[in-house]
Amino acid sequence: MIIDAKGIYYRQLNEMIKEAVEAGETDIVLQNVNGQRYIGTNLGRPVNITIHGVPGNDLGAFMDGPTIVVHGNGQDAIGNTMNSGKIVVHGHAGDVLGYGMRGGKLFIRGNVGYRVGIHMKEYKKQVPVLIVGGTAGAFLGEYMAGGCLIVLGLNTREGEPLAGDYLGTGMHGGVIYLRGQVDQERLGKEVAVFDVDEDDRKLLEKHLSEYCSDLGLSLDEVMSRPFVKLLPVSSRPYGRLYVY
């Protein structure tokens, strides 16, 4: 089913998508999307939504199930508090992606802005995966409590940093993989850099083969550069603060 979103207010558009899903549609194509917010938020079923254009903020906020593919750039707060499902963005995306994300996958082909992956967490079988093809801004993975964050730095220039300052500040769970080196001064004091081992490599291959297949990239090329991983140095970064 194709919906032309041109000039349609977000509330109406989301209502139209919801009605289509309730009528049994499983594949919905949205044309001419231009800033409409909250697409996918009110859907609780594993449907496929293809977006042509630029969806607005909070794409897939609280999302539970759908798969969204964006042929274009994304804006801010994609996958906010997402529970399950998948979002693939073929272009760049903005700030605060995957905030409090508990499950599902968020694949960005290009660069992302500030505050990405803050307070991602995991629970039982729900382990969120956020992959950035380009580079990320400051505060990547702040307060991270679980899940897997991967930054590839594809098409970066020699010496160009993969992420901004305060990387992993307050991190107390989960793992961040970087395809390349990271300057010590960019790190939050709650994380440290480790070499990747065989298990990491398997995990990376698993996630990245899906990423590459979704975005038409070569896995071999992506895996051709060495990765490092960031882990929290303590699961209790804020212990010993108080007097009883």
Partner: peptide, 27 residues
């Protein structure tokens, strides 16, 4: 595991951001 609630919502730095979350919840 420790359950840390950050001081601010890191997706709310302005009234506009608050409006965005309010309507996300309404949606």
């Amino acid at each position: 595991t420790d359950a840390l609630s950050p001081a601010p919502h890191h997706d709310i730095y302005s009234i506009e951001d608050l409006a965005q979350l309010i309507y996300a919840l309404k949606e």
